[in-house]
Computed example of a mutant assay.
Amino acid sequence: MRLTSFTDYSLRTLLYLCAHRDQLVTIQDIADMHSISKNHLMKVVYQLGQSGLVETVRGRNGGLRLAKDPKDINIGALVRMTETDFFMAECFDREHDTCPLTPNCALKHTLNDATRAFLAVLDQQTLQDMLPQQAEAGAAKPVRIVRGAAA
């Protein structure tokens, strides 16, 4: 299974915003950090804003920030929101399934179980869980991100 770039960029955006919670950041900041298209990232940020995960501040000194606490952002829910489908094989799409084996094939059920297991693992994780942890305190440690590396 492979996540779409839309989901990947959504996760990267949220992690970047976590690392910079003390300031507003711009779409350009995130695009530059990850060497991705600003135009594509604008669509990602728009959807994250519509879903209530990101707050956008307009104006000359505007930017983005998390709208929710990282512990309240579930990774499984985010992936479901950003992925268009979970068709692991043609037979998952009833409208376009032309495989003659579908009626008697157990592979579809196995792949369906695997997809459910994949999502079940993601459902157990929050954005907070994805942040670096301080060994002694067990609390989230702010990350200073330098282009191309985490410091």
Rank of each mutant, 00 (worst) to 15 (best):
H34L: 08
N39R: 15
L48D: 05
G49W: 01
H34K: 14
G59E: 03
S35V: 03
N39W: 04
V45H: 11
L48S: 02
G49I: 00
R58A: 11
V57P: 04
N61W: 00
Q50P: 05
I30C: 01
N39A: 12
S35D: 14
D32R: 11
Y46M: 13
A31L: 03
R60V: 02
I30R: 01
N39E: 13
T56N: 02
D32S: 06
L41A: 10
M42W: 07
K38Q: 14
V57C: 05
S51C: 10
A31P: 07
S37Q: 06
R60S: 12
L41W: 02
H34A: 13
Q50R: 14
L48F: 05
D32W: 00
S51P: 06
H34G: 12
H40K: 15
L41G: 13
S35T: 09
R58L: 04
M42K: 15
R58C: 04
S51F: 06
S35Y: 02
K43T: 13
H40I: 05
V57D: 03
M42C: 12
G49C: 02
E55C: 07
N61E: 06
N39L: 12
R58K: 14
S37G: 08
I36L: 11
G52V: 03
G49Y: 00
G59C: 01
I36E: 05
N61C: 02
E55F: 01
E55W: 01
K38S: 12
S37L: 02
Y46S: 15
H34P: 03
N39M: 13
R60K: 15
L41E: 03
L53I: 12
H34S: 08
K38A: 12
